[in-house]
Each structure stands twice: as structure tokens, then as C-alpha cells.
Amino acid sequence: AVSDRLIGRKGVVMEAISPQNSGLVKVDGETWRATSGTVLDVGEEVSVKAIEGVKLVVEKLE
């Protein structure tokens, strides 16, 4: 699937994400809805860990 190529890629949070609410991330110039187990603020760099349906699962870049 086209989304599989995104796993491991870096992105930037465009709309804040929390465990309760999905947000938006931009990866390779495309905007995706994303979820995370932690709070991520706009502008934070993330990496794509998995894909669930049409949402990316991301975590903060260390």
C-alpha cells in the first residue's frame, strides 16, 4: 500500500495530537490524520510507527 512507505519517515505536527484526540502531521509534503500515545504540540518532529486504517501512529522524535 502507498501508506506503507511512510513507516519510519519523519514528519511535523500540524495540529496538536493527544491520546484522546487525533491531529494532523505532514510527512513528505502530504498531510495525514495521526494518533499518538502522548501529547504532541504543533511544530514537534515525529516519526511514523504504524498505520491504522487511514491514520498514522506517530511518536516524538528523540
Rank of each mutant, 00 (worst) to 15 (best):
L24Y: 11
R9G: 04
V25Y: 00
N21V: 14
K26N: 13
Q20M: 11
N21C: 15
V25M: 02
T35S: 12
V58D: 01
D28R: 04
A1Y: 04
V46N: 00
N21Y: 13
K49L: 12
V48P: 01
V13L: 03
V54T: 14
D41L: 14
I7A: 03
L56N: 00
R9N: 06
D4E: 12
T38C: 05
L6I: 08
T35P: 01
W32A: 04
M14F: 08
L6G: 02
S22P: 11
D41G: 14
K10C: 07
E59K: 06
V58F: 01
V48Y: 00
E15H: 07
L40K: 02
D4H: 10
T38Y: 09
K60Y: 05
V39G: 07
A1L: 12
M14A: 09
D28A: 08
M14D: 05
V27K: 01
E44G: 04
K60A: 06
L40G: 01
A16F: 09
I51P: 01
I51R: 06
K26G: 10
E15F: 06
P19A: 09
L6Q: 03
V42I: 13
K60W: 04
K26T: 12
V46C: 06
S36N: 02
R33V: 15
T38V: 13
E45D: 10
V27I: 11
M14L: 14
V42P: 12
S18D: 11
V46G: 02
E62R: 10
E15P: 00
G37L: 13
V42N: 06
S22N: 12
A1H: 07
G53I: 04
L56A: 03
E15D: 08
K55F: 15
K55A: 15
A16Y: 09
V42E: 07
A34E: 01
V57N: 04
S47C: 06
A16W: 09
E62V: 13
V39T: 15
V58C: 05
G11K: 00
I51W: 06
G53C: 04
A1R: 03
S18Y: 11
V42Q: 10
V54R: 04
K49V: 14
G53E: 07
K26R: 11
E44V: 13
R9M: 15
G53N: 06
V46F: 03
A50F: 07
E30V: 04
Q20A: 13
K49R: 13
V57P: 00
L61N: 08
V13N: 00
G23M: 03
G43L: 08
E30L: 06
P19C: 08
R5P: 14
Q20Y: 13
M14W: 11
A1W: 03
K55N: 14
L56D: 01
G37R: 12
V48F: 01
S22I: 12
G8A: 03
G53Q: 04
V48T: 02
V13G: 00
S3I: 11
E52G: 04
S47R: 15
M14R: 08
A16V: 10
A16T: 14
R33H: 15
R9C: 05
T35G: 08
G37W: 14
D28C: 07
G23H: 01
Q20S: 13
L24W: 11
G23A: 02
L56C: 04
D28E: 14
T35L: 12
I51E: 02
D28K: 04
V12A: 07
S22K: 05
E30G: 06
V39I: 13
V27A: 03
I7Y: 04
D4R: 04
S22F: 10
L24H: 10
S18F: 11
V27P: 00
I51A: 05
W32E: 02
D28L: 07
V2A: 11
S3A: 10
A34G: 05
L24P: 01
T31E: 15
M14P: 00
G8Q: 03
I7P: 03
A16L: 08
V48G: 01
R33S: 14
V48N: 00
E62I: 15
V57R: 09
E15L: 08
E62K: 14
V48M: 02
V58L: 03
T38A: 13
K10V: 10
V54C: 08
L61Q: 08
E44Q: 13
G11F: 01
K10Q: 11
T38W: 11
I51L: 08
N21H: 12
I7V: 11
K10P: 13
V39H: 15
W32R: 05
V54Y: 09
V2Q: 07
G53D: 14
S36C: 05
A34N: 01
G53A: 05
K55I: 15
G43I: 02
A50Y: 10
E52Q: 11
T31A: 09
V48H: 00
L24T: 13
V54N: 11
M14Q: 15
D41I: 10
E15G: 09
E59M: 10
R9T: 06
S47G: 10
E44S: 14
V57I: 11
G11W: 00
Q20K: 09
R33D: 15
G43Y: 09
L40H: 11
K55T: 15
S47Y: 14
W32K: 04
V25E: 00
V58I: 03
G37T: 11
V54I: 10
S47Q: 12
L56W: 01
V25G: 01
V12H: 10
E62D: 14
G11Y: 00
N21Q: 12
S3R: 05
V13T: 05
L40R: 02
I7C: 04
E30Q: 05
E44I: 14
W32S: 03
V12M: 10
S47D: 05
I17V: 09
E44A: 13
A34I: 01
V39C: 06
A1D: 15
L56K: 01
V46P: 01
V57W: 11
L40P: 00
P19Y: 08
S18H: 12
R5Y: 15
E62H: 15
E15K: 05
L61G: 07
G8E: 03
K26E: 13
K26Y: 15
V42K: 10
K60E: 04
T31P: 06
S47N: 13
V27F: 03
M14S: 08
A34M: 01
L24G: 05
G53S: 05
V57D: 03
V13Y: 00
T35R: 08
E45S: 12
E59C: 06
E59F: 09
R33C: 07
L6W: 05
D4V: 08
L24S: 14
D28T: 07
D4N: 08
Q20D: 14
R5L: 15
S36T: 03
D4W: 02
K55V: 14
E59Q: 10
E30P: 03
R5H: 12
E44M: 10
G23T: 01
E62M: 08
